[in-house]
Design a binder for these strands. Sequence first.
DNA 1: TCCTTAGTTCAAAAGTTATTGAACAATTGG
DNA 2: CCAATTGTTCAATAACTTTTGAACTAAGGA
Lengths: 119, 119
Amino acid sequence: MTLPHPTTDQISLPIVLAVLGDPTRLAIVRYLASKEGVAMNCSQFLDLASKTNLSYHLAKLREAGVTRAEAVGTSRLITLRRDDLDKRFPGLLDSVILAADGDPALPAVGTTADIEVQA
Amino acid sequence: MTLPHPTTDQISLPIVLAVLGDPTRLAIVRYLASKEGVAMNCSQFLDLASKTNLSYHLAKLREAGVTRAEAVGTSRLITLRRDDLDKRFPGLLDSVILAADGDPALPAVGTTADIEVQA
DNA sequence: TCCTTAGTTCAAAAGTTATTGAACAATTGG
DNA sequence: CCAATTGTTCAATAACTTTTGAACTAAGGA
């Protein structure tokens, strides 16, 4: 298994926007952004969707260039590709996250009790 | 016919992102942004899609709160809801447009010869 | 009034994306 | 080695979105 990622200049704006337009994936990205530096694994998001469905959404995020996933043992360490996104689309990620935090229709992140942060 | 628009605070981030994630609609928005202040009508976008399909995409943009459409005679005057979007999601529209302008995979706007600007 | 222009609506078809469960692979710990 | 854990793949289905053409409405001009 290769876990393919696009290079920075292969990241496409319409694809990134469409990928972030899904509430489940937006929630994942917000959570990653709120824990930047801390590598997450897939099971951290099991409150958002089933295991298979998460695998699907995380693959979409990875293939769009929004996240990076590296295999470590039987886990995947998932991180936001913030540097690449900022380089390619300056200000976009920040404004999306700011907008999400300010949208009362979206759930707050970082305060969700049922997501356990790894020690 | 009522041409319904969401109020500013009804504008939803995931919906806006999903709506902008379609290349045809992104092209419309970029064009509107490049001609800000100039009201466009639907036929200005006929190079992007068929008349019916345009009607569909323009309705999506309007329903998402990205554009405003007012009926004037038999035309619709279409404008970007920049103030509302900036109020609701600061920096988002600018970074999307900047990103689009910098994405070599997307066509340039404002130079398209087959879109005629009304006198 | 009749014709044209501008755009919408509707129903159907085509295409795409999301969700599911069962089966699978790979690593780790006992 | 065996079992548990972590996540993927596959095929099916469900749900949605996009595109189309034909029929329509509404305004404006001749």
